[in-house]
Design a protein around this nucleic acid. Structure first.
Lengths: 137, 137
DNA sequence: TAAACTGTAACAAACTCGGTATCAGACAAG
DNA sequence: CTTGTCTGATACCGAGTTTGTTACAGTTTA
């Protein structure tokens, strides 16, 4: 799957913020760690702000910092914050009414994929930002 | 995640073949059920053929049929056949050597994502084409 | 030989993704 | 109160992906 890496970048961002406990860190400094453009970072930070995970501060000496404790932020929370909770997609072609399989297949597949997504979700919920930092250190 | 729907289409294809037990079904007939173009079907069928899941037959009265029993084909087998086993991606920016987090983050995230993928994989392995057909019927 | 089919290549339209440039506005420091 | 630094937002680009389409050579049956 041509999955994007926004959840990974979000995890990186939040880890950097967690490491600099309670300081306001600029998007430029974070971008230095991720090795990308500050605007890319700010775009993801905006989603994390909407989700109540970080708070930002405009103006000189501004930046972002965590609102929640690192152990209360999981990879799943980041996925939800970015609207990336779906791992599988069902084709969206309208069903052929003449074919019984066609009429029910998408619904059936949806259930199967949903259970796989729940399994992955349970695993993502087990990994907190605190765990990531501990592993890195 | 901008997930594609090729695994879903593959599942649809294989279900149609399983329903028409041991007949050779043309890509056009399958396309009629999926409601798409025959070439799209043939492209996926090519991958399934390489994986030894179906066999095709050129010429008039040609088509494709299953090689394996429906209960021995799982959604995971289809994912592997299409090279779609990865659900998550880590950003590929080179790490910033001045930042300890940056140097280890990608590796750490890779492990976390791998465990989530394994969980989803285990679930996909539980669903066979026979199960899909039973659910549809 | 004619018809029906596969296999494959080439292409297009729509979309996604990561990156970049730019600008208004906030705000702290001097 | 001016200057410098920062966020937030928008717009844009190039590359790649996805799905669908057209076209055509080769195979097989009747």
């Amino acid at each position: 799957m041509a999955a994007n890496s926004r959840v990974a970048v979000a995890a990186h961002i939040v880890s950097v913020l967690a490491a600099k406990c309670d300081e306001f860190v600029s998007s430029q400094a974070i971008a230095g760690s991720v090795n990308t453009n500050p605007v890319v970072i700010r775009h993801i930070l905006a989603a994390l702000t909407r989700a109540g995970i970080v708070v930002s501060h405009e103006g000189k000496a501004g930046g972002s910092k965590l609102v929640k404790c690192p152990e209360d932020i999981t990879l799943w929370d980041l996925s939800v914050a970015l609207g990336e909770e779906h791992l599988f997609a069902v084709h969206k072609n309208p069903p052929n009414p003449k074919c019984a399989i066609s009429c029910r297949m998408k619904e059936t597949l949806g259930k199967a994929f949903a259970s796989a997504e729940r399994a992955a979700q349970a695993q993502l919920k087990k990994v907190s930002v605190k765990d990531l930092l501990a592993e890195v250190a």
